[in-house]
Nucleic acid binder design. Structure first.
Length: 747
DNA sequence: GCAAGGTC
């Protein structure tokens, strides 16, 4: 019997697809890599009964990187990265994906690709083909097919299977081009900046001064807001505050139709005008029905916004929690752009799962009884259905933030099927001495969905009386109040997400990563209310780009590049030409940036202190015998101001002088690195650590004798260690025993 | 030690 090999983008999808295509009768087993499952069944394909095998990858099979020596920061000038050779390598070596695919596809006559229907998915199609084409059985005619589907429903999937096409090479090539561009540009700028500024300053407090086409514009948004705050000039303005007495004797404040004026004399004139009319005359009373609409079905970015502003959770943390809730079966797939339920979605069934819930069961039962409402019509991006609860969980089933996120997702889902919130709005218009005023009040009529999302509820009822036209009221007060305009606040995380989405910076899956990056690199700090306040480092970076080449930080840069790449995807432009053109432009931009780096450096100079001024003396240099300074700001390193040399150190630990012992090889004083909780420690020579003394020694090399992490031989990465025998001598690696190093005592 | 994009 012939066989068909099928591949989805992720394990969960392979399972759903196999279930549909096999009508629920399949044999499943774990694949050899432990991550992917294989589902087998028999079915009909091209008029024949065949063996079907459905499995998946885990996202991209391959990634790209520079070849060998170009990964060495010390041996390669970053400008070479624009022309350096690039290779594809396994995205995750542990998964052994190419081997797994080749093994499972072996002998199959047909390949059906069920990867996500976007450009990345198209690119993964060709990665899969590359892995399996040589192990398939050759038969006449088309052997490789592409399924195009827009929802994971019976009808859609079976329809796609009966109407297969071919993978789209152009779309895949546009992804190849993007990967290569991002790699060359990002790495060239990052390495250059990092080396330049870390070689000069001691208090940057970031292990990396990175640049990227997504992270840098993301930082740009935060600094833009900071600049607005800094350059804000408060302006004085005046408002007229008036109060009238109602027929029942109560007082009521009125809103001035002019709201405010920016000229004191004009304001005073209005006050005089108003005071000249002793009564307030009712011009009209208008009543209208107001409506607060329920939310759209939940997609990823909306979830991230709400989690940040409402739950105080970072996007990165939110995705980690959502991922876990998904794996445990509590919610649907959490990465989706779609905020419209597909027609086949079992809304009622999903709602019924929640009807016995202690927190919202009674609301759900009432909703089911009175008839749930149609959800609002949103956008279908063709990826996954909106994020919804998949089974009922109580507060005791989940912990802390997991519960809070599940609680939100479920309330949001219920709200999308609830009625809108209705209220009655009454506005009374007044005239006092030819100036107009009004007063508005809202009275709740039906809370609708706000009952399940109480934080969106209308405020307290503000009932105001309906007053007949021409009613005259006493004016109790006419006051001139002086105020000042206030600066905007720092950019909130949820505003940032909106800006990124609007400018096409990052994707639903990568937006949290970019935001996390600019926090971890210490370009911004999170202040209360999850607002992003740029640090000095973040500010001088962005201002520096603006001085040298503002394109580098412009939010339009990413979309401009993507537009070019879309030409490749649509077959309207040649892959090599477009890619080379973009590389050439950024190559020039890079050279220009390097030439003009003093413009950015001027900003660094006034903000940061030089390496020579930073740090505290700790140990003697083996060359000049003077004390070197330990620079403790990230990345921790040693600096000898006499030799003007910097020596990197192991990170994330404490560095102390080690018994004032000297390295027998180079006379540098030894240091002891210790790390907190587990109390790991080892002595090292700062020179040997950076310049391995023996051939074939690499940084971070473990024990080459027994590879045990606590074995004293593990110190071999530094070339020296305390002698385990006499505890007095120093062990050095014996190069005569290469390639198996051996320690020998110098005493 | 670099980017951004998939996903676990």
């Amino acid at each position: 019997m012939k066989s068909v090999f099928m591949v989805a983008e992720k394990p969960s999808l392979a399972q759903s697809l196999a279930k549909i295509l096999s009508n629920g009768s399949m044999n499943s087993r774990k694949g050899m890599n432990g991550a992917c499952s294989v589902h087998e069944f028999t079915g009909r394909f091209r008029g024949e009964t065949m063996r079907m095998k459905m499995t998946s990858v885990c996202g991209h099979v391959m990634g790209c990187d520079f070849v060998g020596k170009y990964n060495n920061w010390d041996k390669v000038d970053p400008v070479e990265l624009f022309t350096a050779p690039i290779q594809k390598k396994e995205a995750n070596e542990k998964l052994r994906m190419p081997a797994f695919l080749a093994k499972e596809a072996s002998g199959a006559e047909y390949l059906v690709l069920w990867l996500d229907c976007d450009k990345e998915g198209e690119n993964i199609c060709f990665e899969v083909i590359e892995c399996v084409e040589n192990v398939m059985t050759r038969v006449a005619g088309q052997q490789v097919f592409r399924a195009k589907f827009s929802a994971i429903t019976d009808q859609e999937i079976k329809g796609a299977f009966n109407n297969l096409g071919a993978p789209n090479k152009n779309e895949s090539l546009s992804v190849d081009a993007r990967q290569e561009l991002d790699l060359r540009i990002g790495c060239a700028f990052t390495r250059y900046q990092t080396k330049f500024f870390q070689g000069k300053y001691g208090d940057l407090d970031s292990t990396l001064i990175s640049y990227g086409p997504c992270q840098t514009p993301t930082l740009g948004f935060c600094v833009e807001r900071h600049d607005k705050i800094q350059s804000f000039k408060p302006e004085a303005y005046w408002v007229v505050s008036t109060q009238v007495q109602l027929p029942d004797g109560k007082s009521m404040k009125l809103d001035w139709e002019r709201v405010r004026v920016f000229d004191k004399e004009v304001a005073q004139m209005f006050v005089n005008l108003i005071r000249s009319g002793d009564k307030a005359c009712v011009l009209d009373t208008v009543q209208k029905k107001g409506e607060k609409t329920k939310p759209l079905a939940l997609n990823t970015v909306e979830m991230l916004r709400v989690a940040s502003s409402g739950l105080g959770l970072s996007p990165h943390h939110t995705m980690q929690i959502a991922e876990r809730l998904y794996i445990q079966g509590y919610i649907s797939y959490p990465r989706t752009e779609t905020n419209n339920y597909p027609d086949s979605f079992d809304l009622k069934g999903t709602l019924r799962q929640q009807q016995d819930h202690p927190n919202w069961g009674s609301f759900v039962r009432k909703l089911l009884q009175e008839g749930m409402k149609q959800p609002k019509k949103g956008q279908d991006a063709g990826d996954h259905p909106p994020i919804t609860p998949m089974r009922c969980a109580r507060e005791s089933d989940l912990e802390g933030d997991s519960w809070r996120l599940y609680d939100y997702i479920t309330r949001h889902f219920i709200a999308t099927l609830s009625p809108n919130c209705y209220y009655l709005q009454t506005t009374v218009f007044f005239e006092i001495g030819s100036e107009q005023f009004s007063c508005t009040g809202k009275v709740l009529q039906d809370p609708g969905f706000t009952e399940i999302m109480p934080w969106l509820a209308l405020g307290e009822d503000e009932e105001i009386p309906t007053l007949k036209k021409n009613t005259m009221l006493d004016v109790e007060e006419v006051k001139l109040i002086d105020r000042q305009t206030s600066p905007p606040d720092y950019l909130s995380e949820s505003e940032l997400i909106t800006l990124m989405e609007k400018h096409g910076i990052g994707t639903d899956a990568s937006i949290p990563v970019h935001i996390n990056n600019i926090c971890e690199r210490n370009y911004v700090s999170i202040i209360p209310g999850r607002k992003l306040q740029p640090t000095n480092l973040g500010i001088v970076l962005v201002h520096g780009y603006q001085k040298i080449d503002s394109d580098l930080v412009l939010p339009t840069m990413r979309s401009a590049v993507e537009q070019q790449l879309n030409m490749i995807a649509m077959g309207q432009a040649n892959f090599y030409e477009v890619k080379q053109h973009a590389i050439d432009i950024f190559h020039l931009k890079f050279r220009y940036f390097v030439q003009n780096i003093p413009a950015m450096d001027e900003l660094f100079e006034v903000t940061f202190s030089s390496l020579a001024d930073a740090g505290r003396p700790i140990s003697r240099c083996g060359k000049c015998r003077r004390f070197m300074k330990l620079v403790e700001a990230k990345p921790a390193r040693l600096h000898c101001s006499i030799c003007d040399s910097t020596y990197s150190l192991p990170q994330n630990g404490n560095i102390k002088l080690y018994k004032e012992l000297k390295c027998p090889l180079d006379e540098f004083e030894l240091l002891l690195w210790t790390t907190g909780a587990k109390g790991k420690s080892y002595p090292l020579c700062p020179y040997c650590y950076n310049n391995p003394p023996f051939k074939d020694m690499r940084k971070g090399m473990g024990c080459n004798e027994c590879s045990h992490p606590t074995c004293p031989h593990a110190f071999s990465q530094n070339g020296v260690s305390e002698c385990v025998e006499c505890e007095r001598g120093i062990l050095v690696l014996d190069p005569t025993s290469a390639p198996k190093w051996r320690m020998c005592c110098n005493k």
